[in-house]
């Protein structure tokens, strides 16, 4: 769907040349939510702005849906941009226009007739959940509502791709979640490819399928979100994973656990994208005559299922305990590690 090849952007300032994006290669599949994460100054905004040439690349090529964006002339680029939606951290709505007229703006640009425009605007207002607010001005809306207008506006011309630059960074956690849910909903309903820039791992975890980690203009790590969570290779990536999973100081407390709970087995259950057996613990307790005591752990939900670890104590007949664990190992994707066997 999107192929990026040797993309480079060098800013020349009086003092020095800044390599904001440095030889980037990437391929993004249709219908994917692709996250790009990195710290401030990593070059994320520059990267996403290169995709619709709000920033002219120094070299390299961008191909979106078989169209080479980087070789289009001004007029072709204008038409191509009508099929690439973009939403912004600070919403960038026209304060002089109502919600309705803001959403109608890209349709006016595309030369859609008035009647069709009005029908489409109403459709979009319903889609983003702003019914009843169509005649409000942006100044009368909350941040979350403004971003909904931004999203509706970006979707107006039925784009193939949606670019989001820190779309939730100006919002509180609750509102962030509702906007992220809306993006997932749109992705599933319209099959839209979404490229999402953020510095919050929480956002990646919640909605992305693929993630690329950027540092100094380069992509230093890339893969399935779950893989990256499971096996972060780079130091930056590990720091981002810790944002969501907490720091791994927990290992030390395991010895304490082992001492505190003398009875039964102590087992570490590693969830690596389990979707089918979300109710694993209660299933085990029902199927086998054993007691399960959750000691410690952290589970988080990603687009590919649950991810995280749980430490549990299993008490009961040793044979039953072993059968239960064998069941987990064979029937689910949850990895089992016995920390201490029953005496």
């Amino acid at each position: 769907m999107i192929t990026i090849d040797g993309l480079r952007k060098i800013f020349t300032t009086d003092q020095q040349d800044i390599k904001a994006v440095d030889d980037l290669n990437l391929s993004i599949k249709e219908g994917e939510i692709f996250g790009v994460i990195g710290y401030s100054g990593a070059g994320k905004s520059t990267f996403v702005r290169l995709l619709n040439r709000l920033e002219e690349p120094t070299s390299g090529s961008v191909v979106i849906d078989k169209q080479e964006i980087t070789s289009l002339n001004t007029n072709e680029l204008r038409l191509a941009r009508q099929e690439i939606g973009m939403i912004f951290q600070h919403f960038n709505l026209l304060w002089s226009r109502t919600v309705k007229d803001n959403i109608a703006f890209p349709l006016e640009i595309a030369g859609v007739a008035k009647q069709e425009r009005e029908a489409r605007v109403q459709e979009l207002i319903d889609l983003v959940g702003l019914s009843g607010r169509e005649d409000a001005y942006p100044a009368q809306l909350s941040g979350g509502q403004k971003q909904r207008v931004g999203i509706a506006r970006a979707l107006a011309n039925r784009p193939k791709v949606l670019l989001c630059d820190e779309a939730t960074s100006a919002l509180d956690p609750e509102t962030t979640n509702s906007i992220l849910d809306l993006l997932v909903d749109i992705n599933q309903r319209l099959g839209l490819t979404i490229i999402l820039i953020t510095h919050e791992m929480h956002v990646i975890r919640k909605i992305c399928h693929q993630v690329a980690v950027m540092e100094n203009g380069k992509i230093v790590e890339q893969g399935d979100v779950l893989d990256v969570f499971l096996r972060p290779k780079q130091k930056v990536t590990r720091k981002f994973v810790e944002q969501v999973m907490g720091t791994p100081g927990e290992e030390e407390s395991i010895t304490e656990l082992v001492e505190a709970y003398q009875e039964g087995k102590i087992v570490k259950l590693h969830f690596v994208g389990e979707t089918a057996n979300q109710a694993l613990i209660s299933q085990l307790a029902r199927r086998f005559p054993i007691d399960i005591n959750i000691l410690q752990g952290k589970i988080t939900q990603t687009q590919a299922g649950a991810y995280g670890t749980l430490f549990v104590q299993i008490v009961g007949d040793p044979a039953e305990c072993s059968r239960a664990l064998a069941h987990v190992a064979d029937e689910t994707s949850v990895e089992v590690e016995v920390i201490r066997d029953a005496e």
Binding site: L54, Q82, H90, N92, L93, I109, R153
Partner: peptide, 10 residues
């Protein structure tokens, strides 16, 4: 940003 948004819409 608003000018940029308009540009991004073509």
């Amino acid at each position: 940003g608003v000018v940029e948004a308009a540009k991004s819409m073509g």
